[in-house]
Write a protein that binds this DNA or RNA. Sequence first.
DNA 1: GCACGTGTTTGAACGATGTTCAATAAAAAA
DNA 2: TTTTTTATTGAACATCGTTCAAACACGTGC
Lengths: 206, 206
Amino acid sequence: MKPDQRRLELRKRLLQAAERTVAQDGLDALRARALATEVKCSVGQIYNIFPDLDALILAVNAQTLSELGEKVTSAMTTPNPATPDEAFQNLTNQARAYLEFARDNRNRWQAVFQHRLTESRELPDWYRELKEELFSHVATPLQRLLPDMPAEKRQVLGRTIFSAVHGVVSLGVEERLAEQSFEQLSDQLDIVVGAMVRGLQSQAPS
Amino acid sequence: MKPDQRRLELRKRLLQAAERTVAQDGLDALRARALATEVKCSVGQIYNIFPDLDALILAVNAQTLSELGEKVTSAMTTPNPATPDEAFQNLTNQARAYLEFARDNRNRWQAVFQHRLTESRELPDWYRELKEELFSHVATPLQRLLPDMPAEKRQVLGRTIFSAVHGVVSLGVEERLAEQSFEQLSDQLDIVVGAMVRGLQSQAPS
DNA sequence: GCACGTGTTTGAACGATGTTCAATAAAAAA
DNA sequence: TTTTTTATTGAACATCGTTCAAACACGTGC
């Protein structure tokens, strides 16, 4: 069989195994030797496919970010909202979806924000862009919600709302979240998003 | 007389050196051997004073949290606000102080939220409480700002505001922050805090 | 001064880690 | 079949946190 095909096949197996490990035991449990054993290849083979473990982790995180983005976008119950109220509902649904994903995929989600590159190597551009994409999802309902605001201002505001939601989810997920506290977090998100939108609407769209 | 004193003296030197290393090169640069060399003691001596490096890191982070708390509390320009407006100013000042601290002590601040205990050891209670204290600072201005709200509700709301602010600072500090983007972040904080308070005041204090 | 006991200090040794690369095996070409 | 090229391997290397038997220091009794 073709060499490239086997390469891709092994790459996929490595990614799946790494993803499983991260999901099950967290990012810190990812070990080169254990991975090689699980996939039944030599350690060196990992380095034929990825330059180092950082690259492998980045690939895993990219997959996580992709899934997360998909979940957040599909959380917009009315893709083309007619009223501002529907747009607002989309926004809160997105925030809730973000929280749900973090709860249901705790370790993988944490890996995305916990991982630091060794030394001072720079993040590849495609990965930075993948992260940026997350912000853009918030921008869509905002456009309907605050149509009079300049696009640039709306973009940074989207970032702000995302950051605020992220903060609540981030600190919330640190503690072990019982089912009850999850509801509480969900309420907090509603408060944040609601207050943000209401607070922003009531002031002049300068 | 001597033995305990020398212990404490060395403990202090270790903490200072570790703090310096973290501040300068980040948490990941903290190494037992390098620390021993810098403090001019043997590696084993570190383990006579701290059970492991996790404990040392926790001590460093505790110091950071303490400084941060001090800075945030002292950011309240009018400790006993007469008007809600003054209380609001205190709140935004606190948020700005939080951001400033993160900017001026980037590595140390990041260390607090980046560090994970090895295996699945539990955080000591005194450390958890130290973290909880951060939330309480926000509660003080809130009391003046939303006096009709039940204390319990106000507490969780304080947590929410803190989380939102933390999110903005956290994601903002990830990217290298130029002087200009710092101002932008500061504006974002004003928006968050302002929207939260205004959004919360305009709804029934149920 | 000497021997003994007690607590302290030491740094080589241990096990694990990510990463490399000479040696080997496999495949392709001649 | 022989030669050349490519792919695979896993022992070896450097470095990490951590341990602990041995060396050391110092007070006490003789």
